[in-house]
Design a binder for these strands. Sequence first.
DNA 1: CCTTCTAGACTACCATGGTAGTATACTGTA
DNA 2: TACAGTATACTACCATGGTAGTCTAGAAGG
Lengths: 226, 226
Amino acid sequence: MEAAYASRSSAREMVYRSLRHDILHLILKPGTKMSEQEVSERFHVSRTPVREVFVRLFQDGLVEVYPQRGTYVSLINLANVDEGRFAREVLEMAVVQDACGHLTRDDIINLESNLAQQEICHDNQSYLQMLSLDDRFHAALFRICGRERTWQMISQLNNDFFRLRVLRLSHHHDWDRIIAQHRAILDAVKENKPDTAAQTMQEHLRMVIVERKRLLQEFPDYFAQP
Amino acid sequence: MEAAYASRSSAREMVYRSLRHDILHLILKPGTKMSEQEVSERFHVSRTPVREVFVRLFQDGLVEVYPQRGTYVSLINLANVDEGRFAREVLEMAVVQDACGHLTRDDIINLESNLAQQEICHDNQSYLQMLSLDDRFHAALFRICGRERTWQMISQLNNDFFRLRVLRLSHHHDWDRIIAQHRAILDAVKENKPDTAAQTMQEHLRMVIVERKRLLQEFPDYFAQP
DNA sequence: CCTTCTAGACTACCATGGTAGTATACTGTA
DNA sequence: TACAGTATACTACCATGGTAGTCTAGAAGG
């Protein structure tokens, strides 16, 4: 058996990836109506694969389907954000402590290189690249501990958290603290200080709690009522 | 806006729930072939909703789709089991520590009642009920801490872990330790001993690691090669 | 002007037919 | 017997037509 379904470039897969990307990056804004008809015309495919994409997006929590009424990009649910953040906090504190033990030479080079690129981003103000680097920084810590799948799992469940990060990074360019915290985490891991590393990670992941209020005021119609 | 898609009883939803249940409870054994045709005839619906159900099951990791070749119930992936177990361990240790603080009278009644029913199950040897009670016991701890969604999230990702538990509970009726550990956890929480509670929870969730080897030998064709 | 009712234009849902690609069983050949 | 080539019966994939349910704009009545 060779390549499975996911890796194939079917019409369904193309549409799914495109819509998923656009929703996560807020190109399709929360609350936007999406009809089978419209999407199928836009991508020049029939309605069947579009329906199947909607099923997948619904499974991801990215759209809400109201039968005979319409399909809408789901609003950002702050309760989901908070629980996703909690899961990340607990898991990443454990992971970063574990990483203190086995950090290879290559790992250090990789993480240092990532941080250097973050600095460059800070000058460029390229938030898309910053987002990607941030993800890769955290993913690397999981990979070091042999917990790559765990990262993938919580990533899947943190779609709302992701959208909040997009909103934050794209509208407020106060990335100094973020980068400083990444630096502090890396240093603590390198110096084999698990407690400091965990502490800093916790602080890092709790930043969003404060930012939340500001974003809620600034973009009230992006969020679901709690 | 009222009820959303998920709660409706469409053909798709019926078929999805039925197949999902059968796969998770090993009624449909890992590796079994499932064709659109066959399933659509069995449920007396057309192939379109069946296709959409396959998409959802694929998203859940419960089936693998090989285009133009067939759709198969996915084998149990032990790497997935282990990472899911790790996530549960870390999260549940945090949750059970947190639960020590705020345990209401109703919570105690609920959990004690659950444990009493587990004892009854132990006599009846009803593994399906035992499975359900076990899930509800752990879910209750999350709910107490206001982390119900977190439980739902990790449940979604622990399908392989779930199937391993089904295998274990249905074929080996050594439930004494499981029930005893639940009792120990509850007691520790009641007596406000967070460290003991966390420790016992860790031990509890690590039991499956040992069982794994036995099950792998007993049902080799249920598992994917690592 | 405000409310009630109705006709029409949507929506997602499901059935069905056709297509390209894959696996397999069979046939012909050495 | 062993093997190569081919026909056939599958598979999932996609296009399209019809249907019941929902929303909305405009007419009718107060």
